[in-house]
Design a protein around this nucleic acid. Sequence first.
DNA 1: CTCCAGGCATGAG
DNA 2: CTCATGCATGGA
Length: 323
Amino acid sequence: MDRASTVGQRPSCEAAARGIAMEEVVLPIGEFDLEMTLESGQCFRWRRVGERGYMGVIGRSVIHARHVPMGHGRVGALAVRVVGGTVPDRLEALIVHYFDLARDYPAILRTLRCDQAFARVAPRRAGIHILRQDPFEVIISFIVSANNHIPRIRRILDRLCARYGEEIWTPFGPMYSFPRPEVLAEARLSELRHECGLGYRDQYVRATARAIAEDADFAQWAEWPTSVLRRRLLALEGVGEKVAECILLFGFHRLEAFPVDVWIARAMRALYFPDRMPRVREIQACAAERFGAYAGIAQQYLYAAFRSSGSRKRQPLPGEGAE
DNA sequence: CTCCAGGCATGAG
DNA sequence: CTCATGCATGGA
């Protein structure tokens, strides 16, 4: 039978049209931990498939990635294939770039661990990488993240993509690209608010989408110095201090950016300000001094350590528990 | 029921 | 400049 006819209305879905027998690319990954990275709160749209697998959208490609443990060695590998959408020319290069696999995270972690307080609570293994996500997706995602729970952020973004993104067929069901700025710019507020569940953030999302859609220079933002870019981000509706840092770190790969949320404030207080709650400015100055150009990576390890250990109530700090 | 979530915009002092 | 308050929503 004619396979292509089943997706005839969507000629762009080459991977789907050819079935899922796409070749699998296997990459060495060192200490990289796919699960920790994808569950670290920097991205919201990857979803678990099976035991060790994850599926997500990178650009117009749907990627399935799974961790492959290697024999008796400590390090494993990453098995990746395209299961929908556009087939990239060089899948391996795309994956190395997206997961930042070429960077020496273990060396960075060793440097960060020179700080004794950090070393006490940080993991020994550099499992979490900073992804190279699409800037616009990160901007909208973290506007949505403000004063919100991660599970709900996920649901809101899923609905946003299903409604305004483009459908990409996969054997696991439909996936969606992230909506383009021009599309969100035209969205109806009531639809954003009630159908997508954005609540009072409806206006922030649309206004920001409009600002970016109308800014012919947006593609150049990635070339701007961090301080200039930070200013520009803060001018977007719904983007404050914390969200701007998240966008710098997760959307523009500025590894010195240091988002301070409630968890990081608790962590930094516990580590460096035991007898008082410092201001955000102090926390950032402290982070810049101690973690320098890789403050953002330190932040991710701190966030992971404190978020997972925290169930609302007073808790022993990670590291001061069982010793 | 209340409280909180990877905060922000706004207005008062 | 700093500080307090309201805010949509839904899970705990």
